[in-house]
């Protein structure tokens, strides 16, 4: 009796294990497929960016986008809503869009611009908070009589890909007191840091992660990978 029960239990256990194994294999297959797909899409995007090609956006789209952005800027500047000034604004913005339609939206990624703007707006308060924090730190450093600074140049490779996110990261680093971006060469940042603490703060990579999150650059692959691994892990357990 007990032996049959034991055998049954073992059978059940084996069956469950087999099911779990099949599920895990299926999940792994889909995960590999997904990752390969994202990788290839990513590779194509990077190639397009580095070729400087503008394959998905035509000149007309750039023209219209530039025109509307410039018109909003004109209305902000002018503040007059009579017909004469609005007509002047439309003529001027058309002229500017004709002259430099290829400047503003060059090298930009395909994506949800509203999301980028919203994420950027939520990034700004964090940046201001960091600036205030390191402001106090640098002020305390400068006011100490023995001047405990340790200036050095640090070099790190970034995972960001487009020029606009490089510039955002570089300007965020420069805006934070104590660190200054000296140069960007082939995706490597050369940063002058005043102190060990500010360098460590930069080394944690939180700023880079947040900027990658804004421009949806490297993070979505990593998040996808993490989600896949979690699902597989849960199924096997």
């Amino acid at each position: 009796m007990e032996v049959t029960l034991l055998v049954q239990a073992t059978d059940d256990a084996f069956r469950t294990l087999e099911n779990a194994r099949q599920q895990a294999i299926g999940l792994l297959d889909t995960a590999v497929g997904l990752t390969a797909e994202t990788r290839s899409v990513q590779k194509k995007n990077i190639q397009a960016i580095f070729r400087g090609a503008q394959e998905t956006r035509s000149k007309l789209q750039n023209f219209i986008g530039t025109f509307f952005l410039m018109f909003v800027f004109w209305v902000l500047l002018s503040g007059r809503f009579d017909t004469f000034h609005l007509t002047l604004g439309i003529i001027c913005c058309l002229f500017i869009s004709l002259l430099s339609y290829d400047l503003l939206f060059a090298n930009i990624r395909i994506g949800d611009y509203g999301l980028v703007v919203r994420r950027f707006l939520s990034y700004a308060p964090w940046l201001i908070y960091q600036i205030i924090l390191s402001n106090f730190h640098v002020a305390a450093l400068a006011l100490k009589p023995n001047l405990p600074v340790d200036p050095h140049v640090m070099k790190f490779k970034t995972k960001l890909e487009t020029d606009i996110s490089w510039v955002t990261l570089a300007n965020s680093i420069t805006l934070t007191p104590g660190t200054i971006t000296m140069d960007i060469k082939d995706g490597e940042f050369y940063v002058h840091a005043l102190d060990k603490k500010v360098a460590d703060d930069l080394d944690t990579g939180e700023m880079e992660d947040r900027i990658a999150h804004i421009f949806m650059e490297a993070d979505h692959i990593y998040v996808q990978d993490a989600l896949d691994v979690a699902r597989i892990y849960g199924a096997i357990r």
Partner: peptide, 18 residues
């Protein structure tokens, strides 16, 4: 320099409208 190039590219249309 990537920074200067990008900033100039983004800033130029705004300067012209101004």
């Amino acid at each position: 320099d990537v920074i200067i190039k990008t900033i100039a590219r983004v800033l130029t249309p705004f300067i012209q409208v101004y």
